[in-house]
Measured scan of single mutants.
Amino acid sequence: MSIQHFRVALIPFFAAFCLPVFAHPETLVKVKDAEDQLGARVGYIELDLNSGKILESFRPEERFPMMSTFKVLLCGAVLSRVDAGQEQLGRRIHYSQNDLVEYSPVTEKHLTDGMTVRELCSAAITMSDNTAANLLLTTIGGPKELTAFLHNMGDHVTRLDRWEPELNEAIPNDERDTTMPAAMATTLRKLLTGELLTLASRQQLIDWMEADKVAGPLLRSALPAGWFIADKSGAGERGSRGIIAALGPDGKPSRIVVIYTTGSQATMDERNRQIAEIGASLIKHW
């Protein structure tokens, strides 16, 4: 067993022997301040990774656009098919120029040779490549099948209805392509620590998230040296922004954090800054 596999296998073990965790309302004060600064709703939840206990939450059962955070769930569904012998990570998928959609920095470079399922998941999570996500959605049967996968996990809230990039439209009061912070946090925890996926697939999923290259201005910008984070960000229309993450000190994750916002007129930089400040408060009061 590799060191990384050992780390993920012992996530519940280490967490069980940690000192009790206590909620700190100071972080919620910052979440509410972010709402004021952005002029928009902000949803927040913080779960203990081992027990699933909610440590703090704000608007945990209000719907927010998922945006690209759905790509972690998508690759979880792909990995479940791999575990069941219905898919192979090494299978190569070929596609054409007509398949390319807006923001496809990886797939646009491989029109000639195609990409493997493993490479597509890596591109979808680490670079948020939209064509990679659409190609992977095709392998599982489309958005409705991802929703069905989530329902089978016990998540009857999260739903995907459309493809990239239309799913980022974020129309107010439109339930399409949305989740709730509580539902997303619980589902992410199941994917990373539950028995739904094999140990190898859980490790692969967290490795992809740990290698995320496009979430630097968010929670990662607030992390002290030595902290662990595996995350996936999302951005959408109407001032929408979000991030889902597993993080913790001492090089291992111990909490799940989900943050979503929508309806702001603020710039992307300002949305990023507010999420980073929430992260800084979380870490300060850990």
Rank of each mutant, 00 (worst) to 15 (best):
Val29Gly: 15
Leu219Glu: 03
His24Tyr: 08
Asn173Trp: 13
Asn50His: 14
Met66Leu: 13
Gly279Arg: 02
Met180Trp: 10
Glu102Gly: 10
Leu282Met: 13
Ser221Tyr: 10
Arg92Glu: 09
Ala200Tyr: 13
Ser221Phe: 08
Ala215Arg: 05
Gly216Arg: 08
Gly239Gln: 01
Thr147Asn: 11
Leu135Gly: 02
Gln274Leu: 14
Ala170Tyr: 11
Leu167Glu: 02
Glu35Gly: 04
Gly154Leu: 05
Asp250Val: 12
Ala222Ile: 11
Asp231Ser: 05
Asp250Gly: 13
Thr187Phe: 06
Glu169Asn: 11
Ile93Thr: 05
Thr147Lys: 08
Ala84Ser: 13
Gln88Tyr: 15
Ser122Asp: 15
Leu89Pro: 07
Ala246Tyr: 12
Gly216Cys: 07
Leu135Val: 12
Lys252Ala: 13
Ala280Thr: 14
Lys109Arg: 13
Pro105Ala: 05
Lys284Ser: 13
Ser233Met: 02
Asn130Ile: 00
Asp212Tyr: 03
Ala148Gly: 12
Tyr103Asp: 05
Cys121Pro: 00
Leu135Glu: 06
Ser68Glu: 00
Arg255Val: 06
Gly239Phe: 05
Thr116Tyr: 03
His110Ala: 10
Ala225Phe: 11
Ala132Trp: 03
Leu223Asn: 04
Arg63Leu: 09
Gly279Thr: 06
Phe58Met: 10
Gln265Pro: 14
Leu196Pro: 13
Gly279Cys: 07
His110Thr: 06
Pro165Ser: 07
Leu196Thr: 14
Asp250His: 12
His24Ile: 09
Ala235Arg: 05
Thr112Cys: 09
Glu237Arg: 14
Thr131Tyr: 05
Glu169Asp: 11
Arg81Val: 07
Ala230Trp: 03
Val72Arg: 00
Thr198Tyr: 07
Phe64Cys: 00
Ser68Lys: 01
Asp174Ile: 03
Ser281Ala: 13
Lys284Trp: 09
Val257Phe: 05
Glu87Thr: 08
Glu62Thr: 09
Val31Ile: 12
Leu28Cys: 07
Gly234Ser: 06
Leu47Met: 14
Asp155Val: 00
Ser221Ile: 11
Pro25Gln: 13
Thr27Gln: 05
Gly90Arg: 11
Ile256Phe: 07
Ala280Trp: 13
Leu247Lys: 03
Phe64Arg: 00
Ser57Trp: 09
Gly43Met: 00
Leu79Tyr: 01
Tyr44Trp: 03
Ser221Glu: 10
Arg118Tyr: 12
Arg176Ser: 08
Asp231Pro: 04
Ile54Trp: 09
Ile206His: 08
Tyr260Phe: 13
Ala133Gly: 12
Pro105Gln: 06
Thr107Tyr: 02
Ala84Lys: 15
Glu164Leu: 00
Glu175Arg: 11
His285Met: 11
Leu135Asp: 01
Leu111Val: 14
Gly242Ser: 08
Thr193Gly: 13
Thr187Val: 08
Thr267Trp: 06
Leu196Val: 15
Glu35Ala: 06
Arg41Leu: 09
Gly248Arg: 04
Lys30Thr: 12
Gln88Gly: 11
Leu47Arg: 04
Glu145Arg: 12
Asn272Glu: 06
Ser264Lys: 06
Thr131Pro: 03
Thr147Ile: 07
Val78Leu: 09
Arg176Trp: 07
Thr186Leu: 15
Pro249Ala: 09
Leu150Asn: 05
Ala123Pro: 00
Leu191His: 03
Arg271Cys: 11
Pro224Gln: 07
Ser104Pro: 02
Ala245Arg: 02
Thr193Glu: 10
Pro60Trp: 07
Pro224Ser: 07
Thr158Ile: 03
Ala123Ser: 10
Arg255Asn: 04
Ser96Ile: 12
Gly226Asn: 12
Gly216Asp: 07
Phe70Asp: 01
Gly52Gln: 07
Glu237His: 15
Ser104Lys: 01
Ser128Thr: 04
Ser68Met: 02
Glu210Gly: 08
Pro249Phe: 05
Asn152Arg: 14
Trp227Gln: 02
Arg92Trp: 09
Asp161Tyr: 05
Leu191Ser: 02
Gly251Ala: 12
Ala225Asn: 14
Glu175Phe: 10
Gly216His: 08
Leu219Thr: 03
Thr261Tyr: 07
Gly236Tyr: 02
Leu135Pro: 02
Ser96Gly: 14
Asn272Met: 04
Thr198Val: 08
Ser96Ala: 13
Gly114Trp: 05
Leu219Met: 09
Asn152Cys: 11
His110Glu: 07
Lys32Glu: 12
Lys232Trp: 00
Ile243Arg: 00
Ile283Phe: 10
Ala133Phe: 01
Asn130Leu: 02
Glu277Ile: 15
Ala183Glu: 11
Gly194Arg: 09
Val31Gly: 00
Leu73Lys: 00
Leu192Asp: 02
Glu169Pro: 04
Pro105Tyr: 06
Glu166Ser: 13
Leu192Pro: 00
Leu219Cys: 01
Thr69Tyr: 01
Leu205Ile: 10
Met66Ser: 04
Asp33Ser: 12
Lys190Met: 15
Gly242Leu: 00
Ser281Cys: 11
Glu166Asn: 13
Pro60Leu: 11
Glu145His: 13
Leu188Val: 11
Lys144Ile: 14
Leu38Cys: 05
Leu73Ala: 13
Leu28Ser: 07
Met268Val: 10
Ser240Gly: 12
Ala133Tyr: 00
Glu164Phe: 03
Gly236Leu: 03
Leu205Gln: 01
Gly194Gln: 12
Ile283Arg: 05
Ala124Gly: 07
Asp155Ala: 00
Asp212Ser: 07
Pro165Thr: 12
Leu188Thr: 09
Glu210Ala: 10
Leu199Glu: 14
Leu100Val: 13
Val257Ile: 14
Asp174Thr: 05
Leu74Phe: 00
Tyr44Arg: 01
Arg41Gln: 09
Ala34Thr: 09
Ser254Gln: 14
Glu270Cys: 10
Leu188Met: 14
Ala185Ser: 09
Val101Asn: 08
Asn272Tyr: 02
Ala230Val: 05
Pro165Asp: 07
Arg159Glu: 06
Ile256Asp: 03
Ile278Trp: 01
Asn152Ser: 13
Tyr260Ser: 04
Gln274Asp: 05
Asn272Phe: 04
Thr138Ile: 13
Pro60Ser: 15
Ala148Phe: 12
Gly76Ile: 05
Asp269Met: 11
Ala211Pro: 06
Gly263Leu: 07
Gly242Asn: 02
Leu89Ala: 07
Thr261Gln: 08
His285Asp: 07
Glu175Ile: 14
Ala124Asn: 04
Asn173His: 14
Arg59Asn: 13
Met67Ile: 07
Asp33Thr: 14
Ala148Thr: 13
Ala124Val: 08
Phe228Cys: 07
Thr262Cys: 09
Val258Phe: 01
Ile140Gln: 06
Ser96Lys: 13
Asp207Asn: 14
Asp161His: 06
Leu247Trp: 07
Ser68Thr: 01
Arg271Asn: 10
Asn272Leu: 03
Asn130Arg: 01
Ile93Asp: 04
Gln86Asn: 15
Pro172Ala: 12
Arg176Met: 09
Asp129Trp: 00
Thr158Glu: 01
Trp227Tyr: 05
Gly242Asp: 02
Thr139Arg: 11
Gly85Ala: 11
Ala200Ile: 11
Ala211Ser: 13
Val106Ala: 11
Thr193Lys: 15
Thr27Pro: 06
Ile275Trp: 04
Lys71Ile: 01
Glu46Leu: 11
Leu73Met: 11
Arg238Asn: 15
Leu137Asp: 00
Asp155Trp: 00
Ala123Thr: 06
Glu56Ile: 05
Gly239Leu: 02
Asp129Ile: 00
Val78Asp: 02
Gln97Arg: 14
Arg118Thr: 13
Ala40Tyr: 04
Thr262Asn: 10
Met209Asp: 00
Phe70Pro: 03
Leu282Trp: 01
Ala185Ile: 00
Met209Ser: 00
Glu108Thr: 13
Leu199Val: 13
Thr138Leu: 14
Val257Lys: 02
Asp33Asn: 11
Ser51Gln: 09
Gly216Lys: 08
Glu166Phe: 13
Ser80Lys: 14
Thr179Phe: 04
Asp174Phe: 02
Ile140Gly: 04
Thr131Arg: 04
Gln203Lys: 11
Asp269Cys: 09
Pro143Arg: 05
Thr69Gln: 04
Thr186Pro: 08
Arg92Gly: 06
Ala182Lys: 15
Thr261Val: 14
Gly263Tyr: 04
Glu108Gln: 13
Gly263Val: 05
Thr107Trp: 01
Pro105Asp: 05
Asp113Ser: 13
Lys71Thr: 02
Arg202Gln: 15
Phe58Tyr: 11
Asp129Phe: 00
Asp161Thr: 06
Ser233Cys: 03
Leu49Arg: 06
Ile283Asp: 01
Arg255His: 06
Ala34Leu: 08
Thr186Ser: 13
Lys71Tyr: 01
Arg63Gly: 03
Ala148Gln: 12
Thr27Val: 15
Ser201Val: 04
Gln203His: 09
Lys213Ser: 10
Arg241Asn: 05
Leu223Pro: 02
Arg241Ile: 03
Thr126Tyr: 00
Lys53Met: 15
Arg241Tyr: 01
Gly114Asn: 05
Ser128Pro: 00
Met127Ile: 11
Ile54Gln: 08
Leu247Phe: 05
Leu247Thr: 07
Gly154Asp: 11
Ala215Met: 04
Asp161Trp: 00
Thr116Met: 08
Val117Gln: 02
Glu237Tyr: 14
